[in-house]
Write a protein that binds this DNA or RNA. Sequence first.
DNA 1: CGTGTGCCCTGACAGC
DNA 2: TGCTGTCAGGGCACAC
Length: 271
Amino acid sequence: MPELPEVETTVRGLARFLDGARIERVVLNRADLRRPFPPDLVQMMTGARVTGLSRRAKYGLIHLDRQHSVVFHLGMSGRWRIDPETPDRHDHLVLETADHCFALCDPRRFGSVDMLASDALDDWPQFAALGPEPLGPGLTPAHLKAALAGKTQSIKLCLLDQRIVAGLGNIYVCEALWRARIHPRKAGGKVTKPQLERLVPAIRDVLEASIRDGGSSLRDYAAPDGELGYFASSFDVYGRTGEACRRGDGGTVSRIAQGGRSTWYCAKCQR
DNA sequence: CGTGTGCCCTGACAGC
DNA sequence: TGCTGTCAGGGCACAC
C-alpha cells in the first residue's frame, strides 16, 4: 500500500489511539518479515508507554518511554488494522493497550520492524542514507540539480531512489512527473532548471493532496478493520493506460516499463 | 563508482 | 470450476 502519504496517514491514525497509551500485551505470530524481528522487541514493548509517533520517508516510528523507538516499514502490502473484528492470517505483530488492539498485517512480508535507541536514530544506516524529506525545507531545485548532476539514469528511476528524495514511490513519481510535464525517460542529469523548478512544487502538491485525502478518511479509522488505501480516483496518470490525458491536450496515457516497474505518462505534454 | 537485473512473498484478476 | 500467467504501492543483493 504505502508511499509517503499512506505512511503519514497511518501514523496519524495510529497516534490517535496509541499516543500516550501503555502497551499491555505484545504478540508475535512469526519470527520475521523481511528481516527477523528484534530479539528483545516483545520485552521492550511490553509495559512501555508510547510517548509519540512520527514518520521518516516511508518508515513509521513508535517512540517508547524506554529510550527506544520501534521503526516499521509497510513494504508493498503492509497495513495496521485497528480493533479488527476477526484475526487475519497475516497479522504478524499485535499490540494491545487497555482500550485498543493494533495488528500489523502484511501478506507479502516485504515490510520490516526494527528497534533502535531513540537518540541514535539518525545514525541508523537506513536513515543516514536517505535524501531530504519532500515536504521539508531540504527539497529544492538546487538540491535536485546537485543530486542529479551527471546521472544517465532516467528521472523516473532517480526519483524512486530514496537517497535523492525520501518517500516517493511508483505512484507519486508518475504523478509528479506528469504534473511537471517531464518525460519519465529523460536522463536525470539532463532535466532542465525550469523543469526542476516545476518538479519541486509538483512533488509537494501531489503528496499534500494525497495526505489531505487520507486525512479525510481518518474519521472512520477506528471502525472495525478500518483501512486506509490509495485514492485512485484522484490519480491523473497512474494506471490510466489508454485514457485521454487529463490536461486536455489530446494526448493519451501510455504505459512503459522502467527498472522492471510500470510507468504511466502522456507523451504529448511530458518532454 | 554507477547502473541494470532478479528476487523476496502472497493475492487478485484475466484468459483459457 | 479449475488451472496458468501476469501484475502489484518496495528494497536489497549481486553482477558487470
